[in-house]
Amino acid sequence: MASAANWSSPSTRPPLIETLVSGVDRYNPSNVSILEDYLYHQIRSEEYDCLANLAILKLYQFNPDLYNPDVVINILIKALTSSPFPDFSLCISLLDERPASAASQDEPDPLPTLLPILTALHSLLQQCRFPTFWTLYRSTEVEALRDNYTVECVGFEDAVREVAVRAVKAAFSSIGSERLGTYLDLSGADLSAYVEKLGWIVSNSGVVSIPANPDNQIESTVVQENIQLSQLTKVIAHAAQTSQPAAVPVVN
């Protein structure tokens, strides 16, 4: 996200959604299904539109009857991989109170059990603890989330890898491929293929060089003071006023 514009209005957003997100129709509960369909489209197509998803959560906030835990979980999964940007927290902010417990009559609400897991995963990404993330993600604890949700979310694992790639790109100019492998949860041929796709070069000794970018180029600078004429106007004006040779006061 070099520019926030693509986040607040992604180029993939259809005009209908744009109207909903930017207008008062976003409050109309009958539009929730349009937004939900759009979310599932994002799930299938590796697109992401945070503001549209927040609009769903807003409708749930105002109309607890609309609440659909599957949708919420999918929104959170999508938001997870936008780390280090705060999308995940922004979504959680809108989950008022607990969702109505009335929903539990038919089938148990999966959110209360999955929310702590999602939060834990998010927190690991937030702290760039990628190897631990993968360990937790592959563990049996997270099985329910994997089997019922992330498996449906096309490109989820690659999206997590992109989070790692963003962090690596900014902090490293070169990185050992073993270390990189633990961040991406890839090894051997998979890793080589992934690195090649990124356009990064692996040396014979297994060190991956990362192309220069604004974040991994460092430079010492000294910011020098720059005095503007306007700062001196008072002094100069005063000097001009009093420049006529005046009788020098006798100093005794």
Binding site: P84, Q127, C128, F130, A167, V168, A170, A171, R179, D215
Partner: peptide
Amino acid sequence: MVQQLMVMKQ
């Protein structure tokens, strides 16, 4: 610590 350095960068 290297992971923390990435956090610091972010």
